[in-house]
Write a protein that binds this DNA or RNA. Structure first.
Lengths: 239, 239
DNA sequence: CTCTTCTTGCGAACACTGTACGCATGAAAG
DNA sequence: CTTTCATGCGTACAGTGTTCGCAAGAAGAG
């Protein structure tokens, strides 16, 4: 009886042999979703596995390491970027600006990449990073930069954007972690560190200038200021 | 006998009650040394503890978290930087350049900060970061920037330097991890990804241009190029 | 159809991690 | 001396990345 029961069980409850194939694409897509929803430290192989209705160790059939997974994930989000085609050299500035803005937007959409870029950098050359770089180089080429400078010019604007967006993303992430709203954070800065700030008049002044402004708008303007300076500096080389 | 033996033992081998006080400064100093020698993933409370002849959990008397320790460590290395005093406004450019160079040098000296800046950013306001910012603001003030722009100008150059140095540090770290020398890495890029590079002519061209050059010197020049562009762009605002 | 080979998922296990808790020990204070 | 307090640390717990060996299905060969 119990034997029959067991065999029947093992026939009918043969647990729906999900056996639905895992794929590398599926894994990194779900990883991105997990990172977006719960942040970097929530990414573990076990959690990612259960989200895919799979055991943790199954992932290792499609991905060598967690490090490799991270490389894949970073390249994946780079795939969200696009570089506009430019035919008219006069449009290079707005095109470069659009690149910069979309890169910043990507980092703010996925704040965890900020923590990862320091590990991965542009050292790992995923296909999306390659494609992106190639298109930016083409853009700067038609803009009229000397061939020896296109790479440097690209690095300049990318470095600025990544540095700025990284700082922003880190700030936002820490806000989220602390559970406080931005207003509360500013207020606590204002009050609890008054004495410290007293020794730093210029910092205090800057703080107070931002006091009654929309922080998001202030960040946007600050980003744009630096971007325009970088583009100004590059424009000098064009004539 | 065995009782006596035991009590004698416990008297004489009373293990030299080291009881040498731990201090927060000592802990972060040793943490920096550990990070420099063995990299970011080698930093664990237990390892750090044993390097200090202390148990792992002893550290928690002086430091709340590993996260807090990391904040302290990051501020510590910021303390290595110094901003020159400028009295003559005409010298602002060289002063800003020196700031940028010393910040980059610091990141390359401690490549692990690159991975940490994305987590910590400038959000945690340690005393050294505050001091540094204040002095840079003063410098840009005497340089003649409008009060409303000093903060933005500082952010611009800091973002560029951090973005650039982060990418460099990540690249160097991955070289070290892979165990290969830079020559070998370049060679492997050249050969194994020839087909990929074929679809990206400009990238290939850039790669080949760097082929017979000293990579370190190339990095220095690339950094300087972008820095000069950023400073050019800022100079425009000074008239 | 059977038999073999290959791919893929997965449970168990290992060496670690950060950290909470309680106890013990030494120094300081009354 | 006694009491209080700060500090070090052993133990324990939940959770991590990753290896290994097994099983179950798919695919190909005869």
């Amino acid at each position: 009886m119990s034997g029959d029961q067991k065999s029947i069980d093992s026939v009918w409850t043969r647990p729906r042999r999900q056996r639905e194939q895992l794929s590398r694409e599926q894994i990194v897509a779900e990883a991105v979703r997990l990172l977006d929803e719960e942040g970097l430290e929530a990414l573990s192989m076990r959690r990612l596995g259960t989200r895919l209705n799979a055991g943790a160790t199954s992932l290792y059939r499609h991905v060598a390491n967690k490090d490799e997974l991270i490389e894949l994930v970073v390249d994946e989000v780079y795939g969200e970027l696009d570089v506009p085609d430019v035919s008219d050299p006069a449009n290079w500035r707005s095109a470069a600006g659009r690149c910069a803005y979309s890169l910043r937007a990507m980092v703010l959409r996925h704040p965890w990449v900020a923590s990862l870029l320091g590990q991965v950098g542009l050292a790992y050359l995923g296909p999306n990073v390659l494609r992106l770089s190639e298109r930016m180089l083409a853009m700067l080429d038609t803009a009229g930069f000397p061939a020896a400078e296109t790479h440097r010019a690209m690095s300049t604007v990318l470095a600025y954007v990544i540095g700025m967006a990284t700082a922003e993303a880190a700030y936002m992430s820490m806000l989220v972690r602390s559970g406080r709203t931005e207003q509360e954070w500013m207020a606590s800065l204002q009050s609890s560190t008054e004495q410290v700030m007293a020794e730093h008049p210029r910092l205090l002044e800057g703080q107070q200038a931002h006091r009654n402004r929309d922080p998001e708008q202030a960040r946007d303007e600050s980003f744009d200021y630096g971007l325009q300076r970088v583009l100004d500096g590059l424009a000098v080389r064009l004539g």
